[in-house]
Amino acid sequence: MAKPAPTPRPALTKSPDAQVHPVSGRSTEDLHLVRSTSFKPSKGGATTADAVITSAGSAKHGKLVDVTVRMPKSMRKKLRAIAKERGQTMDDVVNGILAGSLPR
């Protein structure tokens, strides 16, 4: 005698409280965030090994260090304008200028 076919298991359904916020009791809404899209090498500090040094002088001249230099505001303005025009950072511009003018 043939066995009767087993009754298919009822499928999973949404819980009745799925759209209810656990605290407010109101409907929930999603926050749409933008994905990180690409790897951008950064010149981060020594505490992160993600610092990929890309500036002109870094690879040739070793570890980067901070130096505070006082200069006229107008000169800083010019440096910023050059950096913007070239799509570089201020560090890149200053390093490039110094590398070209200092004795080897």
């Binding site: 819980s15 209810v20 656990p22 929930t28």
Partner: peptide
């Protein structure tokens, strides 16, 4: 997956 309503 999870969702906020899992807190229930």
């Amino acid at each position: 997956p999870s969702e906020e309503a899992l807190a229930h």
